[in-house]
């Protein structure tokens, strides 16, 4: 049967500390996921050990600084660059920072704006 899941809310300041703790416990980073709800962005960090997911959620506003965890989990740069490019979130201190060139899209930060088909930049070219 499917596992039950919980998401623990944490503050932005705790992100790095939690990542360190999870790595010490022998968890791997499964994913970082971002959702825009009205004006705020939710970022979920999911770790896993022995097939059990542990999720932590932070909520930020556009322009808030999010510390990178790429110093702890080297591979997190793909998620953090994705957040930068698609949501326009300000993740600082990424080990391999593509500076907005990881995903190149016709609309800047497509997931942070509402796009209607008519004024879609790529559609009319």
């Amino acid at each position: 049967m499917m596992e039950p899941q919980t998401i623990v809310p944490i503050s932005v300041g705790e992100v790095v500390q939690k990542a360190e703790q999870e790595k010490k416990d022998g968890c791997r980073l499964v994913l970082m996921s971002c959702t825009k709800i009205d004006d705020i962005f939710e970022v979920i960090y999911s770790y896993e050990k022995d097939l059990r997911l542990k999720n932590y959620r932070i909520t930020v506003k556009q322009g808030d600084e999010i510390p990178s965890i790429s110093g702890i989990y080297w591979g997190s740069f793909v998620y953090e660059n994705e957040m930068n490019d698609l949501f326009g979130l300000n993740v600082t201190g990424i080990n391999i920072d593509f500076k907005g060139h990881f995903f190149q899209t016709s609309v800047k930060h497509p997931f942070s704006v509402t796009i209607t088909k008519e004024d879609d930049a790529c559609q009319n070219r």
């Binding site: 016709s106 609309v107 497509p110 879609d120 930049a121 790529c122 559609q123 070219r125």
Partner: peptide, 12 residues
């Protein structure tokens, strides 16, 4: 075709 990043067919 309704995705923001797709212009449409190759004939564009």
């Amino acid at each position: 075709r309704e995705c923001y990043n797709i212009s449409g067919g190759i004939d564009k």
